[in-house]
């Protein structure tokens, strides 16, 4: 009984926010993970939008280049991509800097993480958005054109909302993947949640406690995200009858 109480107390001590507890580190790690995931997701959306329009309406050269991009990124394991992109990008930036007589710089882990994961996300987002754009009913766009709606307004008020209804499930998936992929950045030493957890666990030998705590944080993030996306999707699908299997 006392042993159990003692174990519970020491677990709580370990997870205290202020040192010597490691809870603060874990939460900072979580914040970093969310920041990277959000940045990467945003960058991925931007790249994906360009990629989707390029694939649908671009010239043959652009389409070939985009095909190479999406194929390569989706074929190579993400961990390998991260290592390649991270080291290759940091290295080439420094090569260029040295060549021009500047000092070697330390590239911020945050910027590199966002860039690397964003490029990966962009490849998947290209395919999600391309499918969503293709599934917008042409007739509804034509109705807007026939009423003299200018292209910008048409994209904003007709095409985009109709597209979103089809894109949101795929985008929600991508966001969840982004949050989990941030864990891969632990291999390049970035202080995100997994890396912080490993450090805490290594220092205290309380592996079970810390990895359970990290697991719960990831779960919480995922549950909140799923709830948020479900709300967005319900709003985007307003007006469409529910399809039940």
């Amino acid at each position: 009984m006392t042993a159990l109480a003692g174990a519970a107390a020491s677990t709580l001590d370990l997870l205290q926010l202020a040192p010597p507890g490691w809870g603060g580190n874990l939460l900072r790690g979580l914040a970093n993970s969310v920041l990277i995931a959000a940045g990467a997701f945003g960058l991925g959306l931007g790249l994906g939008t360009l990629g989707a329009f390029g694939k649908l309406y671009g010239g043959p050269v652009l389409r070939d280049l985009l095909a190479v991009y999406t194929t390569v990124v989706r074929a190579v394991p993400e961990l390998v991509l991260i290592l390649i992109l991270y080291y290759a990008v940091t290295d080439s930036v420094n090569q260029i800097l040295l060549a021009f007589g500047y000092e070697r710089i330390q590239i911020s882990g945050l910027a590199a993480g966002i860039a690397v994961l964003g490029v990966v996300q962009g490849a998947y987002a290209t395919e999600v958005l391309r499918g969503a754009i293709q599934s917008v009913p042409v007739g509804q766009i034509e109705a807007a054109r026939a009423m003299g709606m200018p292209p910008g307004l048409l994209a904003r008020r007709v095409t985009l909302p109709l597209m979103l209804a089809n894109a949101l499930p795929g985008l929600a998936n991508l966001w969840l993947i982004a949050t989990k992929d941030t864990a891969l950045l632990a291999v390049v030493g970035f202080a995100e949640l997994t890396q912080q957890t490993r450090q805490a666990a290594g220092a205290t030998k309380a592996y079970f406690t810390f990895f359970m705590a990290a697991g719960l944080l990831y779960l919480l993030l995922s549950i909140l995200s799923t709830w948020g996306f479900a709300r967005l999707e319900r709003r985007a699908r307003r007006g469409l009858p529910e399809v039940r299997g």
Partner: peptide, 8 residues
Amino acid sequence: QFNLWTHR
């Protein structure tokens, strides 16, 4: 096909 906007 009418082409009303389904989201409005």
